[in-house]
C-alpha cells in the first residue's frame, strides 16, 4: 500500500517537473517563432547594411548593429578584468571573515539592483562626476562630460560585474585543492599559484561568465538610455585618424543600439504600421547578434579546453 503511494507521488512529481520544463521551453519557442516569422521577411542585405531613412519607417539598421557590437565588446573589455580581479581577491585573499562577507553581500545586492538605477547612476557618477571632472582638469570644453559610448559601456560593465564575479569565483573555487597544494609545496608564492595554476584551470569557467554577461548586457536598454545611446545618428561613432586615414571606433561619440531602436520604434513612432516589420526584424537581429557574440566566446572556450589537454 505504502509503496504504491510512493510510486504515485513519484510519478506526480516527475510529471510536474516535466510540465514546468515543457512550459518554459514552449514560451521560448513561441517567442522565437513569432519573432522569426515577423522579422525574417525584412532581413535583407540592405536592412543589415544601410542606415534608417524616412523617420525610421524604411532603410536599414546598420548603425544600431554596429553600436551594439561596439558597446558589448567595450563592456566586456572593461568588465572582465575588473570582475576577475575582484573574484581573485575574494577567493584567494579574503576568507570567510568580516570583510569578505561584506563584499560578497554587496555583490549580491548589486546583482539585484534594477537596471534603470544603473542608468541613473551612470549619469550621476560617470558623466557628471568623472566625465565633467576630467574635462575640467584637462581643460576640455565638453568631451567626457556628456553621454557617450564610453560611459554607456562602463555602466553596462557595472551591471554585468556581479555575474562575472560570481561565475569567476565559482570557477576559482572549483580548482582542486591538491593542485594548489602541489604548487605551494614547490615554493610558489600566492600570486604564482594564482597565475600559473588556478587561472589556467578556471579559464573556461571565467569565459562562461563572459557569455552570461554578454547575454545580459547586449539586450539592456535602461542603463544606456541616458548614458550615450542616441535616438538617431546619421553617422557612425567612428573617428578617422588624421594623415593616416585609419578609421577607429570613437568611444567619445554617441551611438545607436538595437535594443533602444526597438524601444523607440515601438513607443515613439508616428507610423506604427510601417515600423512593425522593422521592429520584428531588429529584434531578430538582436537575438541573432547576441547568439553570435556568445558563439565566439564559446569557440574561444573550446579552444582553451583543447589546449589544456
Amino acid at each position: 500500500m505504502i509503496i504504491k503511494k510512493r510510486k504515485i507521488f513519484n510519478a506526480f512529481f516527475q510529471g510536474l517537473c516535466f510540465g514546468m520544463a515543457f512550459f518554459v521551453i514552449s514560451v521560448l519557442i513561441a517567442i522565437l517563432v513569432r519573432v522569426f516569422f515577423g522579422g525574417a521577411g525584412v532581413i535583407t542585405p540592405g536592412f543589415l547594411l544601410k542606415k534608417p531613412i524616412e523617420g525610421m519607417t524604411a532603410g536599414g539598421i546598420f548603425p544600431a548593429i554596429f553600436g551594439t557590437i561596439c558597446i558589448t565588446v567595450l563592456m566586456i573589455i572593461m568588465a572582465i578584468p575588473a570582475g576577475i580581479a575582484a573574484a581573485i581577491y575574494l577567493t584567494e585573499y579574503t576568507g570567510k571573515e568580516f570583510l569578505g562577507r561584506v563584499i560578497r553581500a554587496s555583490i549580491n545586492n548589486l546583482a539585484g539592483v534594477p537596471s534603470i538605477v544603473f542608468g541613473l547612476f551612470g549619469v550621476g557618477f560617470f558623466i557628471l562626476f568623472v566625465g565633467r571632472g576630467v574635462d575640467r582638469i584637462m581643460g576640455f570644453s565638453l568631451a567626457f562630460g556628456q553621454p557617450v559610448m564610453l560611459w554607456a559601456a562602463a555602466t553596462l560593465a557595472l551591471l554585468v560585474l556581479p555575474v562575472i564575479i560570481v561565475t569567476t569565483e565559482e570557477a576559482l573555487n572549483s580548482v582542486p585543492v591538491s593542485l594548489r597544494e602541489a604548487a605551494f609545496a614547490l615554493g610558489a608564492t600566492k600570486w604564482q599559484v594564482v597565475r600559473n595554476v588556478v587561472l589556467p584551470q578556471a579559464r573556461s569557467g571565467i569565459l562562461t561568465g563572459a557569455i552570461l554577461s554578454i547575454s545580459r548586457g547586449a539586450g539592456e536598454t535602461a542603463p544606456i538610455l541616458f548614458t550615450g545611446c542616441a535616438y538617431f545618428l546619421p553617422r557612425l561613432p567612428v573617428f578617422t585618424i588624421p594623415y593616416v586615414h585609419i578609421p577607429v571606433i570613437n568611444p567619445l561619440d554617441q551611438f545607436m543600439c538595437l535594443s533602444y531602436h526597438i524601444f523607440i520604434m515601438a513607443t515613439q513612432s508616428t507610423n506604427i504600421e510601417a515600423t512593425r516589420p522593422i521592429q520584428y526584424g531588429t529584434t531578430l537581429v538582436l537575438i541573432g547578434l547576441t547568439f553570435l557574440l556568445n558563439l565566439s566566446v564559446i569557440i574561444f572556450r573550446i579552444y582553451f579546453r583543447k589546449r589544456q589537454r
Binding site: S178, L179, E181, A182, A185, L186, V197, Q201, Q308
Partner: peptide
C-alpha cells in the same frame, strides 16, 4: 620538498 599521498600532477 613534498610528494603527496595522491598523485597531483598539474594538467
Amino acid at each position: 620538498g613534498m610528494v603527496f599521498q595522491r598523485p597531483n600532477p598539474f594538467p
